[in-house]
Amino acid sequence: MRRIGHGRRWRGFRRDDKGFALVEFAMALPVMLVAYCGMVDVVQMVMANRKVTQLTLALADLTARAAAVAPADVENIFDAAQSVLMPFDASNASMVISSVVVDANGNARVCWSNQRNGQALVRGATVLLPDSIRVPSTSVIMATASYRYTPQAGYVLTGSFTLGDNPIYSRPRAGQAVGTGNIEQVVRTGTKPCPDFN
């Protein structure tokens, strides 16, 4: 039996390319998996962000269509609007609907506010509105919604992200001209019309 020298063995080993693709795949697989999971998380987060914008728009629109709302009506609006979030978990959403009245001097203050999993605004609190919205002797429905998004895989995106929390405004479509300033507004039953903020 003839012995093959170490040099010839090494040259033969270097020329042998069997299993080369398998080694490359094993090296690239972890990087590909992390990239894939990260891409899935980013796409899901973008989808959730779009849903939060649609939720906020639905809150403002549904409220602005009413002439008056009872607390039960506001809860129905929250229920209807949060269905927009599906398939995301609605319990991670925070929603606030507020009626903001701008007096004759251009001061914008909260007339009433309702919330679900959020922080309602205090009656009479001053609100900063964009100049295009702050028209004297008018009112506006201001809706805000946010969503706490937690990535599924968490390899690339870690921790929770708060999406949304940007107000959307809608003018009352069927509001009542009431209050001391005879300002058209969506009235909440059991609450005095504004600009009387007492």
Rank of each mutant, 00 (worst) to 15 (best):
R2D: 11
G5N: 04
R8H: 12
R9C: 04
W10A: 11
R11P: 00
G12I: 07
K18C: 08
K18R: 14
G19I: 00
A21H: 03
L22N: 05
M27G: 06
M27H: 08
A28K: 09
M32N: 13
L33D: 02
V34C: 03
V40G: 04
M47P: 01
A48W: 00
R50P: 03
V52F: 06
Q54D: 06
L55K: 08
T56Y: 00
L57W: 09
L62P: 00
A67F: 08
A70P: 11
D73S: 08
N76L: 12
N76I: 06
A80S: 13
A81I: 00
Q82N: 14
S83L: 13
M86F: 14
M86W: 09
A90L: 06
A90M: 12
S91E: 05
N92S: 12
N92A: 05
A93N: 01
S99L: 01
V102D: 01
V102E: 04
V102T: 02
V102C: 10
N107M: 05
R109T: 03
V110Q: 01
S113P: 09
G118M: 02
Q119F: 00
A120L: 04
L121A: 10
L121R: 15
A125E: 15
A125Y: 11
L128P: 02
L128E: 13
L129F: 00
P130L: 12
D131L: 12
R134F: 02
V135F: 02
P136K: 01
P136V: 04
S137G: 04
T138P: 01
V140P: 01
A143K: 06
S146A: 15
Y155H: 10
S160C: 06
T162K: 09
T162C: 07
L163N: 12
D165W: 11
R171L: 12
A174N: 14
V178T: 15
V178N: 15
G181C: 10
N182Y: 00
E184C: 09
Q185N: 09
V186D: 07
R188I: 02
R188D: 07
R188E: 15
T189D: 09
G190P: 02
T191D: 11
T191P: 06
C194F: 00
C194D: 01
C194L: 09
P195E: 06
